[in-house]
Design a binder for these strands. Structure first.
Lengths: 343, 343
DNA sequence: ATCAAAATTTTACCCGCGTAAATTTTATCA
DNA sequence: TGATAAAATTTACGCGGGTAAAATTTTGAT
C-alpha cells in the first residue's frame, strides 16, 4: 500500500515492466499470463494499489462480468435469503452481481430491465413479478440478454426456468392433512400475484380428486404485495362468517398463513393439532418467519439451496454456451414437509 | 420505435442535426440545452431508440450519477422497506441507485466498499454492520466517497448520520409500560450486533433512574443476525428458569421480540394486557411483521419516511456541495408509540 | 435596428482500456 | 543444440464519449 500515483493501466504497466495489453489480459483472467509475468504484476500490485477503471474496461467488451439479479419484492425475506445465496455463488465464480427489486411494481420492473440491458451483463437471473409483469417487455429483454428465470415461471420466456415443484408442495401438505384429520380447504387470494399460486390451486384440486375428497377453495379479496394483511383480513372475514367448510385450512403461501394465524389468534380461535384446538393451518414456502408464528407453522419448504445453486449453474452453462441453450429446460425441485405445531 | 441502426452518439447526433457534444450535454441534463434543441433531440429519440453507452459515459466523468446503497442484512424486511423508499427518491432525482447487502458479513461489507469505490458514485448511503464493521475500512472509504451513514451510527464517520433517536424509542416504551403496569425489564443480546442496541440499553437505564425505578437488564446469548431464533432460545431459557424479575419485558428490538413471543406461546405463557395474561411484552422498531405476531406487538415505530427522506436529502446536499459538509450532522427522528395487544 | 453580454453550440483534443494481428519468447523433441 | 510449434507479448488501432475553449447564436436594452 503506498501513494496511488498510478493513474491508469499504462502507468501501472510501465512500473511493473510489462506491456499494457498483457496487464489487461491479467486483469481479465490472471491465469492467462505466464506465471513469471503474473508474479511481477502481483508484486507491483502490492506496492501500488492500482485498480482498472471498470467503465473503461466494460466499454469495449461485448460482455461484462456482471450478473443481474432481479426479484419482485425485496421486503419479503424469502427473496432476501435467495439473493444471499445467489450472490455468494456469483462472486465465487468471479462475477459481479448487481441486485434489483421491482418492489411490486410493473413500471419499476420494466425500468430495471431497461437499465440492465445497457449494463451488458453476462447473464441475468430474473424472478419476475408474475401476473403483473409486462410479458412483452420481458420477452424482448430475454431476446437480448441471456436470462434464466427463477421462482416464478413465465411460459416460454428466458432460456431456462428453475424453481420449486408446486405439485410436490401441495401433494405433500394435502396428503398429510387429509391423512391426519379433516379434509383441507384451500385458502388463497382471488387474484394471486404469482403464477405459483395458480399451480398450487390446480395441484390442490387434482390431489383432492385423486384422494376422492371434495375440494373447497376459499378465495379472499385484496391486491398488492401485502400478503400478510390480506391473509389477516380474509381470516377475520371467514372466521366471522363461520364460512370455513372444514376445520383444516391450507394456505397458498406462508405469508397469507402468517396473516391468517394472526386473525385466528385475535379471534380467539385456537390453532394446532391438539385436542383443544379448533383449527389446523398449514401452508407452503417455509418462509424465514414461519417458525416463529404462533403456533409455529406446518409448511412445505423450498429447497432454497438447490434452487439457487441450480439457477446459478444453469446461468453459467448458458453464458458459456454463448447465450443460447438447446432447448428451454424447466428444473423443478421438490418440497420437504416441515411439521410444526399448526397442523 | 424503429430499427436501432444507431451505433453511437455520433450517429445519433448526425441524425438529429445537432452536434455530438450538445447531445452529450442533453443526456447529462436535459434542461441544460435550449428548449428547441431539446425538442429536436427528443423527436429523434422517438424515432430511433438510441441510448448512450453507460460505460463510455462514466469513463471520463469524475463523478457518475450513481448512488450506492449499502445495508447490513437484506433478509431483514426492515431494510427492504427502507431500501424501497430510498431507491424511489434517488430515481426521482435522476440518480441510479445500486443496492448492496453485506449479508451480515464483514468481509462482504469490505468487498462492497471496494467495488463501490471503483464505481465512482456521486454518493453513498451506508447502513453499516455496526460492531462487526471494519472501522478503518469504513473510515478510508468515507474519505474517498461522499457518504451519509444511516440506521446505525459510527462515531465520526461519514459526512452525516441520519437515524432514529433511540432515547425517544425507549423513553416512550418505558414510560408507557411503567405507567400502566409493572416495571419493565430490558431484554437484549449479550453482544449486540448494532450500536443502536447499546444506546437503547443506556436509554433504558437512564429512564429508569429518572423514574426512580430499579432497572433489570436480561442478557441472552447468541451471535449473528438470526435475532428471532436468539430471542426464542433466550425466551425459553428465562421462562424455564423463571428468572424474569418482572412480568413486563421490553425487548431491545422487534426481531428479538418476535422470537420471544414464539417462546412464550410454546411455553403456554399468555402475553398481553388482559387480566388473564401473565406477561406483557413490548419492543422497538415497528418491524413489518410486528403487527402479525400473536399477540400483535406493542412497539415504538421508526419514522421510516422521515429517516429515508432525510438521508437522501442530506446526501443530495452533500453531493451538491462537492462531497464535504461544514460539520458532521446527526439527525435523529423520534419514535411513535404503537400500542397493540402485547402490552 | 444595433450591439454588447449571456447563453448555447462546436471544435478539438483526450480518456482508459479492449483486441486483432504481428512479433517475440518459451517449450518440445529429436 | 537446433528446428519448430505453441504460447505469450507487443504493436497499432479503435471505441464511445467527456470537456475546455473557441465560435456562434440569442437576448435584451437602447
Amino acid at each position: 500500500m503506498s501513494q496511488s500515483e498510478i493513474r491508469n493501466m499504462e502507468e501501472f504497466a510501465a512500473i511493473s515492466g510489462i506491456s499494457r495489453p498483457t496487464v489487461s489480459k491479467y486483469f481479465h483472467d490472471p491465469s492467462s499470463v505466464r506465471k513469471t509475468t503474473r508474479m511481477r504484476i502481483e508484486a507491483a500490485l502490492e506496492k501500488y494499489d492500482y485498480r482498472p477503471n471498470i467503465y473503461a474496461m466494460n466499454q469495449n467488451r461485448k460482455l461484462t462480468k456482471n450478473i443481474g439479479i432481479v426479484v419482485p419484492y425485496l421486503a419479503d425475506p424469502f427473496f432476501g435469503e435467495i439473493v444471499r445465496m445467489i450472490e455468494g455463488r456469483c462472486i465465487e465464480a468471479g462475477f459481479t452481481p448487481s441486485l434489483f427489486s421491482a418492489h411490486g411494481d410493473q413500471a419499476h420492473e420494466n425500468d430495471i430491465l431497461d437499465s440492465l440491458r445497457s449494463m451488458k451483463p453476462a447473464g441475468v437471473l430474473l424472478a419476475p413479478l408474475g401476473r403483473q409483469s409486462d410479458k412483452s417487455a420481458i420477452e424482448t429483454f430475454c431476446k437480448h440478454v441471456p436470462t434464466v428465470l427463477f421462482d416464478s415461471n413465465i411460459e416460454g420466456m428466458g432460456e431456462a426456468f428453475v424453481g420449486s415443484d408446486n405439485h410436490s408442495f401441495v401433494s405433500q401438505t394435502v396428503e398429510y392433512l387429509s391423512r391426519t384429520g379433516e379434509t383441507p380447504c384451500f385458502f388463497e387470494m382471488r387474484t394471486p400475484a404469482n403464477p405459483n399460486a395458480n399451480k398450487r390451486r390446480i395441484a390442490y384440486l387434482s390431489m383432492m380428486e385423486r384422494l376422492g375428497l371434495e375440494p373447497h377453495v376459499v378465495k379472499i379479496d385484496g391486491t398488492g404485495w401485502g400478503f400478510e394483511e390480506i391473509g389477516r383480513q380474509g381470516g377475520f372475514r371467514v372466521l366471522a362468517e363461520k364460512s370455513l367448510p372444514t376445520n383444516t385450512v391450507l394456505c397458498s403461501n406462508d405469508r397469507l398463513a402468517i396473516g391468517f394465524l394472526s386473525a385466528c389468534y385475535e379471534s380467539g380461535v385456537r390453532v394446532g393439532r391438539g385436542p383443544d384446538c379448533q383449527l389446523r393451518v398449514a401452508s407452503h414456502d417455509d418462509h424465514p418467519f414461519s417458525r416463529f408464528t404462533c403456533p409455529s407453522l406446518t409448511t412445505a419448504a423450498h429447497d432454497y439451496t438447490a434452487v439457487s445453486d441450480n439457477a446459478v449453474e444453469t446461468l453459467f452453462r448458458l453464458i458459456e454456451s454463448g447465450g443460447r441453450l438447446e432447448n428451454r429446460t424447466e428444473s423443478l425441485f421438490p418440497a420437504r414437509l416441515i411439521m410444526r405445531d399448526s397442523a
